[in-house]
Design a protein around this nucleic acid. Structure first.
Lengths: 215, 215
DNA sequence: AACTGTGAAAACTTTCACAGCC
DNA sequence: GGCTGTGAAAGTTTTCACAGTT
């Protein structure tokens, strides 16, 4: 066990292993090898063992890994022992879709409260989550001890909301706005951008010569 | 100009440069340096120059890059000279949100048609995009010369749809289903998974001191 | 003087290969 | 025999530093 900086790719693979282990657990599989885990997510067995070795040693030589134990260990590594408390800012199209997305809860994230500027949207519940006006943001983020904020606002307001959020004890932001956010270095930030992923595909498609180029 | 395998991170940064250049273009900026580009996306100037050098040389020494020219060059590298023809499979919550997401068109992706199994959903238009029954999938993918399919179905059906799509001349898939897809190696596939990103944040949050010194 | 383009060095990530244990 | 854990090697990406151009 050799604690150094853990790479983003390792963390991404840990999530994938966890998904797989939960499926195996549901299917009643009791023991799994690094070869099986690798096959399930499309990497190599050595990579699986290396990833895990960053955090300890979880298997038995000659046997493999006990599914339930490894699942619990990875949940603990990822900080998913208790459900994470999440708030949503922006209850538009994407935001509302997230409120109805049951998989989030299954995977350990509970959207406790949502916010919107639009009086048409606040004051009611969407999929059981109360939508509140923006002026209650800071107060409720602290009161509800929110750990993660999902930003699903128009890009123009994203930065302003990010500033307000930083002062309220929130530790991470997941933003759906393509533009870069300036934040305090202590705040963890990630982006999701459909167009960016499509651009990546577009590159691969044209690089593969999978399309007709005029000569 | 040195054509080898381009890394995924380079492609992601190209998208980010492109975003920035479009903003600069709108703001009337005419020339930009690698330092400016780096600052705008949070990387180093050397990285910007190295990224671009994979594809040619686009700047003038002592001057910088002409915003309009570099924008056009990156669009061409990413295969975005003409709008990409996209279809959506699954017009549920996430799918419908995407149909109403105007940014996609602005960034060069046109959702031409959508599909759903549910008779409540097909037969009408959502944000001007016709939603068709699933049995027309193959026929319309070819007829409309669809290049990219966005999969927003329940995970259980994602694999089956991926199989059907592969036979219809589609070159890429963007999947919102967490589970791994088995596909033909010629097909480019990307994933988006909100829970996976949240898991990454959760890890960063709990590992608040994750830079521990070596053994 | 300012800023690009690029080899070479440093840092990081993945793969190899095998010792160690069940 | 089967499979993990891990140093060492190979491969990849980023950073450095400077020659070259306007």
């Amino acid at each position: 066990m050799n604690l150094r900086k853990i790479s983003e790719s390792t963390v991404r693979r840990l999530s994938l292993y966890l998904n797989l282990l939960r499926d195996m657990s549901d299917a009643g599989t009791e023991v799994v090898s690094s070869v099986d885990l690798a096959g399930g997510i499309g990497t190599t067995a050595a990579q699986v063992r290396k990833d895990l070795s960053n955090f300890g040693s979880f298997g038995k030589r000659g046997q493999g890994y006990v599914v339930e134990d490894l699942r619990a260990s990875i949940e603990s590594i990822l900080g998913l022992v208790r459900p994470r408390r999440v708030a949503l800012v922006g209850a538009g199209k994407i935001g509302s879709a997230l409120l109805g997305y049951r998989d989030l809860r299954t995977r350990g994230f509970e959207i406790i409260v949502a916010f919107d500027i639009d009086p048409e949207k606040y004051g009611r519940k969407v999929f059981d989550v109360p939508v509140l006006p923006m002026d209650q943001l800071e107060q409720r983020l602290s009161a509800d001890r929110i750990e993660i904020v999902i930003l699903a606002t128009p890009p123009a307001v994203a930065q302003e909301v990010a500033n307000r959020v930083t002062a309220s004890g929130v530790a991470g932001i997941l933003s759906f706005a393509a533009s870069k956010l300036e934040t305090d270095a202590t705040l963890a930030v990630r982006w999701m951008d459909v167009a960016l992923e499509l651009e990546g595909l577009s590159f691969l498609i044209s690089a593969a010569g999978n399309e007709v180029e005029e000569s």
